[in-house]
């Protein structure tokens, strides 16, 4: 009975071993996340009954709300939002429900910092947007909004996500264009973006786009106000 698998004794120090059956019993109540889920957090969240959960979570939620209300005092004000989102992801494996309020907090976080120049190229902030886009009826509008606001402009993640969205929705030419724009602005990490682009190109070669697919322009054309359109070069006074 109590034979401890020797794995427990070696190597992967510091973490305890979760029994799969504790998770498997509830597998249909867990929405997979791309970055994975902590088995330990899952087991903890699933161990309480739905009635107990409600009692447990409201004081925890109040604490997060309090920290958010004081966030403007912080050097890194997004931090309590990220902690809050992480808590929801752990405590509510089902994802968005009226109990979890996930979309609500994603919305608050994205809108709170949309004009914060210091987060424009912060991958943590962009990831919140990307999670929010998953729950949107019109993800494309979110991508174009971000482009207009130059949020994530220098991050590969933006171009990868947007291109993937376009690709699975059969806008391969536009996806191609998005990758190229990302590479042309040297989005980082550039190597990863190039690799994704080459994977995409491979798929494209095997499965070329239909002739009647929509094509450009895919990102809003930025028209700086009063840009010179013609006539003598800039600084010359009129």
């Amino acid at each position: 009975m109590s034979i401890i698998p020797s794995a427990q004794l070696e190597g992967q120090v510091g973490s305890s071993i979760v029994q799969f059956s504790d998770i498997e019993d509830y597998k249909e109540n867990i929405q997979p996340l791309r970055e994975g889920r902590s088995a330990q957090s899952l087991a903890n969240a699933l161990a309480v009954t739905p009635l107990q959960a409600k009692d447990l979570r409201s004081p925890e939620r109040q604490e997060f709300e309090k920290r958010i209300s004081e966030a403007s005092e912080l050097d890194d004000p997004i931090e309590p939002y990220l902690e809050y989102i992480k808590w929801i992801n752990n405590a509510f494996p089902q994802g968005q429900t009226s109990d979890s309020g996930l979309v609500n907090i994603l919305e608050r976080c994205t809108s709170q910092f949309r004009d914060a120049s210091f987060y424009k190229d912060d991958p943590r902030y962009l990831k919140v947007w990307m999670q929010y886009a998953k729950y949107s009826d019109a993800p494309k509008e979110i991508f174009t909004y971000l482009a207009r606001k130059e949020i994530g402009k220098n991050l590969s993640l933006f171009y990868e996500e947007y291109a993937s969205y376009l690709e699975v929705n059969n806008c391969k030419n536009q996806a191609n264009e998005v990758y190229q724009i990302g590479i042309s602005v040297n989005a980082r990490p550039l190597e990863r973006l190039k690799r994704r682009y080459s994977e995409f190109s491979e798929r494209l070669a095997r499965n070329p786009p239909d002739a009647n697919e929509p094509s450009s322009p895919v990102l809003p054309i930025i028209r700086p106000a009063l840009a010179l359109k013609g006539g003598p070069l800039s600084a010359d006074p009129i």
């Binding site: 992967q12 071993i17 029994q19």
Partner: peptide
């Protein structure tokens, strides 16, 4: 081995 790994025991 993996540092700080999550570990799950299967049947």
């Amino acid at each position: 081995t993996i540092k700080n790994a999550e570990q799950v025991q299967l049947r």
